[in-house]
Simulated assay, not measured.
Amino acid sequence: MAKIVSNFFISLDGVVERPDQWHFPYFDDEMGAVVGRGVAATTAFLMGRTQYQEWSEFWPNQSGDDMEFASFINSVPKYVLSNTLTETTWQNSHLISGDTDQVAARLRELKEQTDGEIAMSGGATTVRWLLANGLLDELRLLVHPIAVGHGQRLFEGTPTYPLRLVDSATLKSGVLNLTYAPA
């Protein structure tokens, strides 16, 4: 049985939006190894409509330094949660739509039929929905030692979600590598 794992670059003040504008000074070989282990365990990828639209325009056309991740993300099964998309055109993408109960049932079925990790990254709205519906198995955060001061926060305007720490490490850059599971 697979587990759904959400991965975020996050600032000390909880911002997850636009990590490309604040994250890279902290990215080094050690963080690359953490990210690489996550990618190696991923057997499917879960995303919302916005991320799907952005990534489906970008990743199929990449080469050079981006080729290793491009090969992975272009070939791995991708499941897109959306009630506004009518089709997916990116290689190996599958649309999951319907009301909350239908989508949750489809994801539970997917977890039962799949092994490994179904990775979810980039969408605070999606991770909140997964938590609210009891579908998220792990939340992995790379907490950067920076206060961004603006942007979407991971848990902005949400109910209380008790979590328990299942793993932690401090990287040389000062980034905290934290893994939580629902309590």
Results as ranks from 00 to 15, higher is better:
residue 49 R to I: 11
residue 49 R to Q: 14
residue 49 R to G: 10
residue 49 R to S: 10
residue 50 T to S: 05
residue 50 T to D: 01
residue 50 T to A: 03
residue 50 T to Q: 00
residue 50 T to L: 01
residue 51 Q to A: 08
residue 51 Q to D: 00
residue 52 Y to Q: 01
residue 52 Y to H: 05
residue 52 Y to F: 08
residue 52 Y to E: 00
residue 52 Y to R: 02
residue 52 Y to C: 04
residue 52 Y to V: 05
residue 53 Q to K: 06
residue 53 Q to L: 14
residue 53 Q to V: 12
residue 53 Q to A: 10
residue 54 E to W: 01
residue 54 E to C: 03
residue 54 E to Y: 05
residue 55 W to M: 15
residue 55 W to H: 11
residue 56 S to F: 00
residue 56 S to W: 02
residue 57 E to I: 04
residue 57 E to C: 07
residue 57 E to L: 13
residue 57 E to Y: 08
residue 58 F to C: 06
residue 58 F to D: 10
residue 58 F to R: 09
residue 59 W to V: 02
residue 59 W to E: 04
residue 61 N to D: 13
residue 61 N to L: 07
residue 61 N to W: 09
residue 61 N to Y: 11
residue 61 N to Q: 14
residue 62 Q to S: 03
residue 62 Q to T: 11
residue 63 S to R: 03
residue 63 S to T: 14
residue 63 S to K: 04
residue 63 S to D: 13
residue 64 G to M: 07
residue 64 G to E: 05
residue 64 G to K: 04
residue 64 G to T: 05
residue 64 G to C: 06
residue 64 G to Y: 02
residue 65 D to A: 13
residue 65 D to K: 12
residue 66 D to Q: 15
residue 67 M to I: 15
residue 67 M to E: 14
residue 67 M to D: 13
residue 67 M to R: 15
residue 67 M to F: 11
residue 67 M to T: 14
residue 67 M to L: 15
residue 68 E to T: 12
residue 68 E to N: 05
residue 68 E to D: 12
residue 68 E to I: 04
residue 69 F to H: 13
residue 69 F to I: 09
residue 69 F to E: 03
residue 69 F to Y: 14
residue 69 F to S: 02
residue 69 F to N: 12
residue 70 A to H: 04
residue 70 A to S: 13
residue 70 A to C: 12
residue 71 S to Q: 13
residue 71 S to Y: 01
residue 71 S to T: 12
residue 72 F to G: 09
residue 72 F to K: 13
residue 72 F to D: 07
residue 73 I to D: 01
residue 73 I to G: 02
residue 73 I to C: 00
residue 74 N to L: 05
residue 74 N to S: 10
residue 75 S to D: 15
residue 75 S to T: 15
residue 75 S to F: 00
residue 75 S to G: 10
residue 75 S to M: 07
residue 76 V to W: 02
residue 76 V to F: 07
residue 77 P to W: 07
residue 77 P to Y: 08
residue 78 K to M: 08
residue 78 K to D: 06
residue 78 K to L: 04
residue 79 Y to N: 11
residue 79 Y to I: 10
residue 79 Y to W: 15
residue 79 Y to A: 11
residue 79 Y to T: 11
residue 79 Y to L: 10
